[in-house]
Design a protein around this nucleic acid. Structure first.
Lengths: 180, 180
DNA sequence: ATCTAATCGTTAGATATCAAATCTTATGGT
DNA sequence: ACCATAAGATTTGATATCTAACGATTAGAT
């Protein structure tokens, strides 16, 4: 018989996500190398699930979404040659970008037109409504960023960026041919 | 006219994901507060997309997946009272867990049976085939962990865990009622 | 000049996830 | 004893994402 403490009814935002560990997990039982800590992929995934969800919720309050915000951000940060490049910048596949752009176009936030110089490429540009939406989303994103970094020194953020970059590089490097 | 360098045909694993930034992005143009660096949510999302994909690919080579591995991991790390608790541990919703467990049951990796003491509860237990699969997945997961941490001092990993935990807490804390 | 191959984008089909509705079983109030 | 409510799990319907196949356009070879 296992005693289980349930989510209290009075708890604000009784969101069970990621809050289930009432007993201390001992991952060393399953993963001898981990020293009792959850493995890195699990920690990363857990944090990102929670952060991304909160970010999405915040953007949704002004009618946006994470993908929409990343698209706006890439479009405004520098001119993009084509959708393929935009997709890479945003971190999604071209097919996925198509869906988002179609939705944004139907919502009147962007225009797509063929480049006269190379009619294969579709040029993406913001409409006035798109500019207005961008500003609203930016406000929410900036507020979220402030909240996210609260109590974390800038040095730690820098360190975080470095370590994440290293993890990303380590994950993708091919062990077959590291030396040419 | 924008000059665009295309993916070279000779590049190994010409996966465009997250590799599109040939020009240095200046996010300060769009996000004045960021100091030219991409905002934290974007960095997090980018790193996790890449790492999770690589991890999934690795697990797929022995017939597994990220979700399956997390489920095994939680089941082996300590006994779990019920599926709701297991879902929280894994970091997914109960409905999603049901799908995975159904698939794993059909694959002969686990059994689900009603708890005689409380017939609402479905107890999950590994079959011998499940134990064997767990060992194979663990091997892959340990190798991936080693690869992921290559060149990163343990102190940095500890630091990473701490910062991620803080980000997670900051993301979810309710600004409405921080003080009771 | 024409034909083949490459590039850009979209469409189609599949999977993973979530929220909401539903089903089954247990608990508590009367 | 009976019924309403709660808890655990599943099912349903929606969304975001991916890969693979396709359509349109251009570039290159002959």
């Amino acid at each position: 018989m296992v005693a289980v403490t349930r989510d209290a009814a009075w708890a604000p935002r009784s969101d069970a996500r990621m809050s289930g560990a009432r007993h201390k997990m001992r991952y060393s039982r399953a993963m001898p190398a981990a020293g009792g800590e959850p493995p890195i992929p699990k920690v990363l995934w857990g944090t990102v699930s929670v952060v991304a969800r909160a970010f999405d919720d915040a953007l949704a309050t002004v009618g946006g979404s994470r993908a929409m915000w990343f698209i706006f951000l890439s479009l405004k940060a520098r001119p993009v040659a084509n959708q393929r490049e935009l997709a890479a910048e945003v971190g999604i596949q071209g097919a996925t970008l198509t869906h988002h752009l179609t939705a944004m176009e139907q919502a009147g936030l962007i225009n797509r037109r063929r480049d006269p110089a190379n009619r294969r490429v579709h040029l993406v540009e913001l409409t006035p409504a798109g500019e207005a939406t961008f500003l609203k989303l930016r406000e929410v994103a900036l507020a979220f960023d402030r909240k996210l970094r609260e109590g974390i020194p800038d040095d730690d953020i820098r360190h975080l960026r470095q370590t994440l970059a290293r993890l990303q590089a380590n994950a993708t490097d091919d062990p077959a041919a590291p030396t040419p």
